[in-house]
Amino acid sequence: MKDNRIKGIIALAIVTIISFGIIYGTKSLVKVDDSNNEQGNNVEPTEGILVVDESYEGVDSAWEIKDDAGNVTGYAVKASARGFVGPVVLQVDFDLDGKTIQNLTVVSSNETEGYGSKMEDEDYLKQFPGTVAPVHFEGESASNTNKDDLVIQSASVVNTLKDGIYIAEADDFIGGYKSIVTIKVENSEITSVVWDQMDELGQYKSYLSSTGKYVMTEDGLTWKEQADKLAANVIENQSTSDININDEGETDSVTGVSISVNEFTDLVEKALLKASGPTEEESNNETSATGSSQIDAISGATHSSDAIKTAINRAYTFINDYLNK
C-alpha cells in the first residue's frame, strides 16, 4: 500500500511539474504589451506624475499620457467613488483640453453581478470616448448633477420622451425598503419598466421574492410578479393613467395586484419627467452647461451609476483646476 502511494506521489509530482512548465511556458510565449492593456493605459508610469492635493476627494493619482516620442497627448486621472458594494475606481483619460474623455477604464469594482458590474461591459464603456466632462445623467441639468435637487413637475407638462434609461429613487426607506424605478425609452416609447425595492442590507425584494425569502401570501402572486404586472401595464398604456388608486393606495386596475402602488406610480412619473427633458425654464438657466455631456446610467443600478458619474467628475475637477492654475 505504501509503495503504491509513493509511486503515485512521484507520478503526481512529475506530472505537476510538467503541467506548471506548460502553464508558465504558455504565459511566456504570449506576447504581453507592457505599456497598454486592452482597455487602455491603466499602468501608472514613473514620469510625468501630477501632484494630487489631498483636498481633491476621491482622486488617487494623475499623470501625463505620452506618445512614443515623449510628447504629452493627454492626462490620465485615477479617481474613485463609493458604489453600491464598495469603491469604484476608474481611470479617466482626458485629451489635452482636460475635458474630452479619450477613454474610460474600470480599474476595480466589486459591484453586484448583473447590476452594477455591467459598468465593465464593452457596450456600456463605449459611450465615453468623445464625451465632454463633467457628465450627468439624462434629465439632470448639467449645472446641477445632484439628482436629489430635481424639480418635480406634474405629469401634464411631460414632453416627447427622449431615448435613454431613467432612474427614479424614493428618498426614504418605507417599511424597511426603498423603491427604485428604472424606465427605458426607445424611439420615444417606453419599452421597459423595472420596479424594485432595496432593503437597508442592500438586498433587492425582487430577488428575495423570487427565491421565496419574501412571501406575502401562500397563494396569489409574489411581489415580483405583481411588480412585473404593474410594469407591463405602464408599457402597454405608455403612462400610469390606467392605474387608478384608491384611498388605501391600492389599485384594482391590474388583475392580481394587491400591493400598494402609489410609490410606484410616483416614481414612474418622476422618471418620465426626466425622460421628457428639462423644462424651458431649466434650459434658460443652463448657462454653465456648455460642453457637458449626458451619459447613460446602468439600468437598475443607481448607486453604481452615481459612482461612475461622481468619479468622472472628480477626475475632471482635478484636471481642470490643474490646467487652469
Binding site: 476595480s108 453581478e113 448583473g114 458590474s117 465593465e120
Partner: peptide
Amino acid sequence: VDAVSSATILS
C-alpha cells in the same frame, strides 16, 4: 494589491 475585478466566464 490592486487586483482587477472581472466577471467569471460563466457570468
